[in-house]
Design a protein around this nucleic acid. Structure first.
Lengths: 342, 342
DNA sequence: TTGTATGCGTTATCAC
DNA sequence: GTGATAACGCATACAA
């Protein structure tokens, strides 16, 4: 079945020269006669030669490959980031190996090992919600592999990072709610082992504080980061003696969608009786009725930023590696679900 | 910067044995003493040894890597297929290299070459809308690499294929419209160099034929496969002296969304005055008002099927390769946008 | 059960 | 400019 592929030796043999010359020609070296170079190139094309990147990389000790680990490939935010990375790396001849951790630390560790085995030059990761320690990430650094964290990052780990300014975004979101006249604002929180969710809470508290609103504990709900959990939380919240007049689903738009559906089913008028605010600017937030106010994270741009950061770092690899963090400012997208005043 | 990694020689040296024994132990061969095997494994862990997959693959002449080429990574359908493939291949220790063609044949060719260079064992591809010939795909086969096409396939190319039964799905969709009493059904077509769109047209015609409805040329619109193009087409269609009473956006839900927005803006009542039917069951189709009737393609399952097909084929690689096509039956999801009768 | 020798395809370092 | 040769790290046929 498997046909034997053309190698540089095949080309050399045919032209009665040595593999070294062929290699040089193929790598566009100057130390080869222009005529023979052309001849070699022509013959290579005729024989349908393709360089064996495995061998080349083995020899050169680098792979021109970047490994990416995300919780889920088919989640809008992540697939957008990947698309952004692909855009920026492809033109430089890099390949991408994609892994999904499925939010499990166990699988995340396996992914890391696979990528180390593959000799990738760089690992780009957004850690799984399940990850509590990070020996495996230290291991990456021990192997001399560049590590870049994005979005869900572990702060203590000194690596390159590309993040969203979650605190600021959250602060602006809640401020917006308050300015719209909402006073009892509930917060749907995500797993607090992820910094991004902690930061969003901080922003929430800061906004309440700025406007001298009290923090009401029963309005702060743990781990409501799927549509179902968002719905469930809303059922409870809206059944309180004093229900909230706004819900900030700081975890995701899916959660916000759950809120919207339950609220509508329970007869609450959105936005007048209840304001709803999501996170991520998923495509559907524009389409619900009412449309959902949310926060755009510039995900594709984030991917490009990750790639650029890597390349910049590579250029200066002679100098010491300085931990560098790029923070992207998300944007509040105001839609109907929080627009009380007309 | 780059630290030297532990190799099997380092382990061998430390234990005063040879690299071959280490290799055997690491590959769990039986031809190695159980005690030394344990010792080797322990030492490998201590030295933080990671196998160099590049070298291993070079030696073995296979890469345990599957290359995937899709038009766009961050398009729901494709990212779902990729997730499905990832699911099924990961447990078998395969890696995925992802490329996006951006709907350009030129980039598609580059992707193919990259993957061949990478010595991938298999290339999974859904061809770009722009692709008119397929020398580059023949080239894949010439290199003894397994080729699997999915969704957007080139029929003449004898490879493994996983497709949707587009014709049947389209037939059922249009039949449904007719049964709902729609009589002037417009069709938004996709690029006809892609078979999937041809098939959907065939299904459309077959349904009209079955119910003895005339084919009205002015209701068949070319290349309306984005939201914008769908909107544009709708503006024209609804301005006709005799506008359609239903529009089948056979290209995508995005196109259907464009239809819905324009129709609503022009004051057409959906579904009573105008039925709308999309394709792909994007998440948002459930959320628009009215919700959009569409066709589910079981994308994640499709990915798994691709992977399974590959593994089955590998098991029988001794026998001759027989072109095999798996057709997945899509499912019509009936929602409000076409539900006239209550 | 273990060691020896060789090759996978490429590139880098010599010497000519 | 070109050729010979070694080396990247691993796996395996063969010998012991």
């Amino acid at each position: 079945m498997k046909k034997k592929r053309t190698t540089i030796y095949d080309i050399a043999e045919k032209l009665n020269i040595t593999a070294s010359s062929v290699s040089r020609a193929l790598n566009n070296s100057n130390y080869v006669n222009e005529n023979t170079k052309q001849l070699i190139l022509k013959t290579a094309a005729e024989l349908n030669y393709k360089r064996n990147t495995l061998a080349s990389n083995l020899r050169k000790g680098q792979s021109k490959t970047i490994g990416i680990i995300v919780p889920r490939i088919n989640q809008n935010f992540f697939s957008n980031v990947i698309a952004g990375i692909e855009d920026a790396t492809y033109e430089k001849g890099y390949n991408l190996i994609i892994c999904q951790s499925n939010e499990s630390q166990e699988k995340e560790i396996k992914c890391v090992n696979t990528l180390i085995n593959q000799q990738v030059d760089c690992i780009v990761i957004s850690i799984s919600a399940d990850s509590s320690d990070y020996k495996h990430l230290k291991n990456v650094l021990d192997h001399g592999i560049q590590l870049i964290q994005f979005d869900r990052v572990i702060d203590e780990l000194e690596t390159l990072k590309v993040i969203n300014d979650n605190e600021q975004a959250s602060f602006e979101a809640v401020s917006h709610l308050i300015e719209q006249g909402y006073k009892r604002i509930a917060l749907l929180k995500g797993p607090q082992n992820l910094d991004i969710f902690k930061q969003r809470k901080v922003g929430y508290l800061a906004a309440l504080n700025k406007y001298s609103l009290p923090v009401i504990d029963e309005l702060i709900i743990e781990n409501a980061w799927t549509k179902e959990l968002g719905a469930e939380a809303t059922r409870k919240l809206l059944s309180l003696p004093e229900p909230p007049d706004a819900i900030f689903a700081s975890t995701s738009d899916f959660s916000a969608l759950g809120v919207l559906e339950v609220a509508t089913a329970m007869g609450f008028k959105v936005p007048n009786q209840l304001g709803i605010l999501g996170y991520a600017n998923e495509a559907f937030t524009e389409l619900t009725s009412p449309s959902i106010t949310t926060i755009d994270q510039f995900s594709v741009y984030m991917g490009r930023t990750v790639a650029d950061l890597y390349f910049k770092e590579m250029e200066n690899k002679d100098t010491l590696v300085v931990p560098k963090t790029i923070s992207i400012k998300p944007k509040l997208i105001i839609r109907s679900s929080t627009s009380r005043k007309k």
